[in-house]
Computed example of a mutant assay.
Amino acid sequence: MRSYAKISAVAVAAALSLTTLTACGSDSGGDGKDGKVKIMVGGLDKVIYLPAMLTQQLGYFKDEGLDVQLLSEPAGVQAETSLVAGEVQGAVGFYDHTLDLQVKGKQVESVVQFSHAPGEVEIVSNKAAGEITSPKDFKGKKLGVTGLGSSTDFLTKYLAVNSGVKTSEFTPVAVGAGQTFIAALKQGAIQGGMTTDPTVAQVLDQKLGKILIDMRTPEGSKAALGGPYPSSSLYMNTSWVNSHKDTVQKLANAFVKTLKWMSTHTPEEIAAKMPADYAQGGKELYAQAIKSTLPMFTKDGVMPADGPATVERVLKSFNPNLKNATVDLNKTYTTEFVKKAG
């Protein structure tokens, strides 16, 4: 029962933070004109979204004359909700949300593409390792995702459908990440699930499970999904981007500078710049988590050429909203700002 208590506590905290945001969504802190920008991140302490906090820690936002407030939600789908509601000006989450939103009539675009692989790992608990040896075995199982409608949910569904398992034949369970994911795995509330570092490193360190599918590298992404899968990104409402080009350029400058910095520094050096409480499993384990995930990141923030088409194909395989819809991929991202970044 303790795992559910922890999960519900996180859910309550998320709801409270969203309520707080709604209350202050229309205040003066965030129209971008004065350099104040609010960005919601789908889990600030996740390594896949590391560039957000690292940019803050390196002082690159400040160098550009920006006052950026980073906020956190446990799942990317909640970051998307905050952006669409106008409570924040940007979201750091998976690029796939831009396609999903377009068919729902919302025009959102990736402005800086942090990655060309998902950075996600399908973990199987040691107890279930004998019966789950591939996605074909998802049938009848309870599988953890960060949130329903999140990118972990999307990717789990794709892996199932691609292996002949219908989305109705397994149960996705929203367990967040970090300690709530680990608790659900320990208690047997899930037999496996999709998560990222540092959760992956902690699960392996505690010998609670093993890796079934590793999508932290471009090679792993190609093997599981058939091509590059651009995931973590800064995405924003297109109308806001078009009316705040100076501010967006400054954001792109800061993030591209960070991505370049990451490509020339060791995992240990990167870990040392991050807030101490991000290393919940200890400094060495946190540095290892960063090392495992580093291959997913781009060095220049530019969308990989074949990436959008891979994402569209993956989403259309299981998402009824997208299946027969026409998606204008050119409107789901822009390279205008990253190409100008120094």
Results as ranks from 00 to 15, higher is better:
Y4D: 10
A14F: 10
C24E: 09
S28H: 13
G29Q: 10
G29R: 08
I39L: 12
L50S: 01
A52L: 14
Q57K: 10
E64M: 14
D67L: 12
L70R: 01
L71N: 15
T81G: 07
T81A: 02
A85P: 03
Q89P: 03
G90R: 00
A91V: 07
F94H: 05
T98S: 10
L99S: 09
Q102S: 10
Q102A: 15
K106S: 11
V112M: 02
E120F: 08
P135C: 01
F154R: 09
K157C: 06
K157W: 08
T167F: 04
T167C: 09
F170R: 02
V173G: 02
F181P: 00
F181W: 05
I182T: 07
Q187C: 11
M194C: 04
T196P: 02
T196N: 14
Q202M: 10
V203H: 00
D205G: 03
L208K: 05
L208S: 04
G209Q: 00
D214E: 05
G220R: 09
A224E: 03
L225R: 04
P230A: 13
S231M: 06
S233C: 07
Y235V: 03
W240I: 05
K245V: 10
T247Y: 07
A254T: 05
T258N: 13
K260L: 08
W261A: 08
M262S: 13
S263T: 08
S263V: 12
P267R: 12
E268Q: 12
P275Q: 07
D277E: 06
A279R: 01
Q280S: 13
K283S: 11
T293N: 12
M303C: 14
G307H: 02
T310L: 10
V314Q: 02
P320M: 11
N321P: 07
V327Q: 07
N330Q: 13
K331S: 14
E336K: 12
V338D: 04
A341H: 02
